[in-house]
């Protein structure tokens, strides 16, 4: 057991305790948490910083406003409902279309048909705080449903694949793409059964996939190869993530982005407590990269500069060929 611990330490693997005490508590002041925990605020701040985000159609802030939902979505075919203070992808409902026979029935990304009443109930639950971190009353966001870029079409099952970049003190440190599976119910969360694939920071090409802490080569539902996918707009994605530091001032930050077919990379949300699965997906520990960033850290570097440095520093060796 001690041997395993020593090997992990040598590999620079970051553990939960170390992440919590040494990074989150030190670099993420609690007063900045609302900037990422309230997705409405995140969206505002990101927009102000000139970043691209999915359009916000409406916010339902209390039980009384739940009734306004049909008005908000009246002219919409697809949209996403999510709790403003949700975590881990809980409580997100992706509506991809309306039922052709009944106007007030909606089709979810899973293909399931759901009535307006059920959506209203879901909204009530969100507003009541069922999905919020603290159990406090929450808000529900209704926003643009991303039409993901065809590059991921073969390696995702329903849902929207997203890209998670861990940004340490403004420098992108590690990235992965999260691919929904049938098991994850279309959600891009690793602990719900989505496949994670590490990304070569230098060139933006996917590595092996990881499913439930095990390495996989193919997507479990589609059978397509996961490795070697080139992610479009890679430089822009890294620059946007780096800019996330200016927006939130959180030193240990997870930035989640999606690539829209029409609008390019969009910031979905940011996270003050990004998980450690990204290490498994990349088959690499975070600590070495963090130590390297501490070495080269330059307070006055611009986001674009920081993204460039991250690409140079964290390019995998085989990528040079």
């Amino acid at each position: 057991m001690l041997g395993t611990a020593a090997r992990l330490r040598d590999a620079g693997v970051l553990g939960l305790n170390e992440r919590n005490t040494d990074y989150i508590m030190r670099l993420n002041p609690r007063r900045y948490y609302p900037r990422v925990d309230d997705k409405v605020l995140t969206k505002e701040l990101a927009l102000k910083a000139g970043m691209a985000v999915p359009d916000l159609y409406g916010v339902i802030a209390n039980q009384g406003e739940v009734r306004t939902f049909p008005d908000i979505v009246e002219n919409l075919q697809s949209f996403v409902i999510k709790p403003a203070a949700g975590s881990g992808g809980d409580g997100i409902l992706v509506v991809t279309g309306r039922s052709e026979r009944k106007r007030d029935c909606f089709r979810l990304s899973s293909g399931e048909i759901i009535s307006e009443g059920e959506i209203l109930y879901h909204l009530s639950n969100i507003v009541g705080g069922q999905y919020s971190l603290s159990g406090n009353p929450d808000k529900a966001l209704i926003e643009y449903c991303v039409h993901f870029d065809p590059v991921f079409a073969n390696v995702s099952y329903q849902g929207v694949p997203d890209i998670r970049v861990v940004v340490y003190r403004g420098y992108p440190a590690m990235a992965m793409v999260r691919l929904p599976t049938r098991a994850s119910d279309g959600k891009a969360n690793l602990h719900q059964g989505a496949v994670g694939a590490g990304i070569d920071m230098g060139i933006g090409v996917t590595l092996n996939g990881v499913l439930d802490d095990e390495i996989v080569d193919e997507h479990p539902d589609t059978g397509a190869l996961i490795e070697g996918l080139e992610i479009p707009h890679w430089n822009f994605i890294l620059e946007s993530s780096a800019k996330g530091y200016e927006v939130t001032e959180l030193g240990y930050l997870g930035v989640d982005m999606v690539i829209d077919r029409d609008r390019g990379p969009l910031i979905l949300e940011m996270n003050a407590r990004p998980g450690l699965n990204i290490q498994i997906a990349n088959c690499a520990g975070l600590r070495n990269r963090i130590a390297r960033i501490d070495e080269i850290h330059n307070k006055s570097a611009e986001p674009a500069e920081r993204a460039r440095i991250a690409r140079r520093e964290f390019q995998l060796e085989r990528g040079i060929q």
Partner: peptide, 21 residues
């Protein structure tokens, strides 16, 4: 324990693959 930064025992299992490489 509040300042314990070492691995949790379950993490040894979780990150096992990373220790092999």
């Amino acid at each position: 324990v509040g300042r314990y930064t070492g691995y949790r025992l379950t993490e040894l299992q979780r990150f096992k693959a990373l220790g092999l490489g």
